[in-house]
Computed example of a mutant assay.
Amino acid sequence: MVQDPYRVDVSLEPLDEYLVIQPTADETETRAGLILPASAAQAAACRTGIVTAIGTDVTGIEPGDKVLYPRDAGFEVRLGGIEVKVVKRSDLIARIHD
């Protein structure tokens, strides 16, 4: 079986109190149905994302949780063309229940 040499399968395992978040699109829709572009959302101080992995010391958060975190928190990492954020558990502001 020959694997595609251009495909990169990478997993990121955070250590200790760190977790990996895949940011959601900044484009949002208002209650009235207006779509705000990502450029307008970048003025917001917070972002939302989905937790994809957690370190051994992280409590109260599980992979798959949607969370709110400061825009400037953590480290941006690009893995296989996908942007993720690695942040400390203490940087999270809230869990979002849709």
Rank of each mutant, 00 (worst) to 15 (best):
M1D: 06
M1F: 11
V2Q: 04
V2R: 12
P5I: 08
Y6R: 08
R7P: 04
V8R: 07
S11R: 12
L12R: 03
E13F: 08
E13M: 05
P14W: 11
D16E: 15
E17Q: 14
E17K: 13
E17H: 13
E17S: 13
V20G: 02
V20R: 01
I21Q: 03
I21N: 01
P23K: 08
A25I: 10
A25Q: 12
A25C: 12
D26N: 14
D26I: 01
E27C: 06
E29I: 01
T30I: 03
A32L: 11
A32W: 04
G33M: 04
G33Y: 00
P37D: 10
S39Q: 07
A41Y: 11
A41V: 06
A41T: 11
A41D: 10
A43Q: 12
C46F: 15
G49N: 01
G49M: 02
I50V: 15
I50C: 02
V51D: 02
V51F: 01
A53Q: 05
A53S: 08
T59E: 15
T59V: 13
T59G: 13
T59W: 13
G60N: 08
G60Q: 13
G60S: 05
P63W: 01
D65E: 06
K66M: 09
L68E: 15
Y69H: 02
R71M: 09
A73I: 11
A73T: 07
A73G: 06
A73H: 07
G74I: 15
G74Q: 14
F75A: 15
F75Y: 10
E76C: 06
E76A: 06
V77Y: 02
R78V: 14
G80L: 02
E83A: 12
V84E: 00
V84W: 00
K85C: 06
V86F: 03
V87Q: 04
R89C: 07
I93L: 12
I96S: 06
I96F: 09
I96R: 04
D98V: 04
D98N: 11
D98M: 09
D98F: 09
